[in-house]
Simulated assay, not measured.
Amino acid sequence: MAALAGALASALLLVAPRGADAHANNRVGGTLRIGVGWLSPPETPDMRLYAEEGFDLDLAAGIARGMGARLELVLVAPDDALLALASGDVDLVVARAGAGDGLRRRARIVETGFESGLSIAMRSDRPLASWADLKGRVVCASEANHHGRDLAQRLGATVKVERAPAVALMHVRTGECDAAIHDQVLLDPLFTKLSWQKFSATLPAVEPTSLVVAVSPGNADLAQAVAGALRDGTSPERWRQRREKWASTVSFEVYRDQVAADCH
């Protein structure tokens, strides 16, 4: 109980009223513990950096920066978000939530403006006709894409888990995977690139979720502070820029990795 009280007190110290003392939180220097569903490894065997599947880690960093706090990322399994909040293990959780998700009913939610259903990338010359056709097929998905991996498994696909989106998409190009599963709103700008026309077959998006920030139900002050920290970075135009940058970066990473593989 003492630990929970201390955690809530720490979180509330980070909240500052807007107005004359709006920047008081920048002087607090506290630690904000943010739960996320996946943490990138400290390094990869070949020391290559990759764009991640979504924007959870970037959003967490932006929240801490906007609140003038030190960021501590805590690994929280998607199904354990409510427990982590209730126990005080984290101050807030950045997660994906569908319309009927229990997180929406039992936590205080701050919307971020990002929403997407799942879709796939596959070869244009032999596309699958429906989601049911994934049964028995090899589907690539990144480590961070919990929702995509779960969907592919439920459809009876053989899921090949890869370190990052670029690796999953590269294996569609090389034929190791029949499809790669990702957010539709991230695949859309990727498919506008000429180099992806042969691999831009897709399926209608399913199972939409939103990227949200969840805090304990009674912590309205912290939710307000989070909303303030996010205000300048979650406009439709800012999300469009992020999606375009993601597509350009991932496209380059696929090219880099495929060229390197072809040279060996």
Rank of each mutant, 00 (worst) to 15 (best):
V139H: 06
E143P: 00
L134F: 15
S10N: 15
D58F: 09
G156I: 10
G68Y: 01
S216I: 03
S200Y: 06
T192I: 10
L14Y: 03
Q224E: 12
A229G: 02
H147A: 11
A20E: 13
L92S: 09
A95R: 09
L230I: 01
P127C: 03
R242M: 10
G62E: 12
K193I: 14
A22L: 03
G6H: 14
I63G: 07
T112N: 02
T174A: 05
M67E: 09
V206W: 00
I120K: 04
A2L: 14
D80M: 09
M47R: 15
A64P: 08
A179H: 04
A16C: 05
G68C: 10
G117N: 02
K160Q: 13
A61N: 11
V90W: 06
H23W: 09
L134H: 11
A157P: 13
W131C: 08
A77I: 03
L211A: 03
S248D: 11
L194S: 15
L92W: 10
T234I: 15
A205F: 00
G233K: 01
R108T: 03
D221H: 05
S116F: 07
V259E: 12
D125G: 05
I34Q: 00
M67F: 13
G68M: 04
A64V: 13
E176R: 12
T192F: 05
R123V: 09
D262S: 15
V185M: 05
V74G: 00
A247C: 08
G102R: 13
T202F: 06
T209P: 00
A223E: 01
A260C: 05
G37Y: 00
D91L: 06
